[in-house]
Simulated scan of single mutants.
Amino acid sequence: MPRILPALALMVLATFAVAQDTPNPEPTAEPSMTMLRLAQIIRAIDPEATPSGNMIELTIDDIPVIVVADPVADRMRAMVPIRSAQGLTTEELMRLMQANFDTALDARYAVARGRLWGVFIHPLGPLEKDQLISALIQTVNVARTYGQTYSGGATVFGGGDSNGIYQELFEELQERGEEI
């Protein structure tokens, strides 16, 4: 019996030594996002994308997208114009703020220069390629779903008001269906 403990201890030590000698493959980090890399990714998405200074204009599913980046401030912004801000009602503005909380995901509704925009804002340097692609998709989706589901994608964060609004719509449509 006494020989088992030393043998077990040797096995544990040997296992530990092997684990220490075996390097853990770390995922290779993407290079920092630069204006050049940003432009290359955008041109792969839309070969017709038009750069102009720190701005690149592209089109995704017939929706114009503007990407502006400032390497000095380490910021980037993807924007989609949605409509004039003139005439937005208090109820519409409230709905936009509710969507910013739970359905717009990382994109947001914003008002600037007299327009309603779908926007995504992120530090430029740590932005990864897939995050950029997701940002573009979400920004296009908030524009596309404006006035309907106000959604940046398929996910609802929850805890906000949108689920209740969707439930009310579901019940209303359910009631309409009962009449048929």
Rank of each mutant, 00 (worst) to 15 (best):
Y109K: 06
F101H: 13
E91G: 12
P126L: 07
P126Q: 08
L116V: 09
A110T: 08
T90A: 15
T139C: 08
S84L: 10
A143M: 04
T89G: 11
V140S: 04
P81C: 04
L127W: 11
D70G: 02
V80H: 05
S134C: 10
T103F: 07
G114R: 04
G114T: 04
Q138R: 06
V111S: 10
P81S: 10
V72G: 06
E91M: 12
M97V: 11
P81N: 09
I133C: 04
F101S: 12
H122L: 10
L105N: 08
K129Q: 14
V119H: 06
G125K: 15
L93M: 13
M97F: 11
S134A: 15
L88K: 04
N141F: 02
E92C: 07
R77V: 13
F120D: 00
V68F: 12
R113G: 15
F120K: 00
L96P: 07
T89M: 06
V111T: 14
R115H: 13
L124M: 09
G87H: 03
G125P: 12
A99C: 04
R83I: 01
K129G: 08
I82P: 02
P71L: 01
Q86V: 12
Q131N: 07
M94R: 15
A69Q: 00
T139H: 07
Q138V: 00
T139R: 05
E91S: 14
S84N: 12
K129H: 13
E91T: 13
E91R: 13
A73N: 12
A85S: 12
T90M: 15
A69G: 03
T103P: 03
M94W: 13
D70L: 01
T90W: 12
Q98H: 15
W117C: 04
L93V: 11
I121F: 08
G87P: 05
R83N: 02
L127C: 15
D106E: 12
T90R: 14
Y109E: 05
G114Q: 07
A73Y: 07
R83A: 08
A110F: 12
D102M: 03
T139Y: 06
S84M: 08
M94S: 15
Y109Q: 04
T90E: 15
D106C: 10
M97S: 14
M94P: 08
E128G: 13
V142C: 03
V140T: 09
D74L: 00
V142Y: 03
V111G: 09
M79E: 05
V140W: 02
F101V: 12
H122F: 14
P126S: 07
N141T: 01
M97K: 10
P126C: 09
R115M: 15
L96E: 03
I82K: 01
A112S: 13
D74W: 00
Q86K: 14
S134Y: 11
A135I: 04
L124I: 03
L127G: 08
M79Q: 03
K129I: 10
A69N: 01
K129V: 10
L136R: 00
A69E: 00
E128A: 14
I133F: 08
R75G: 11
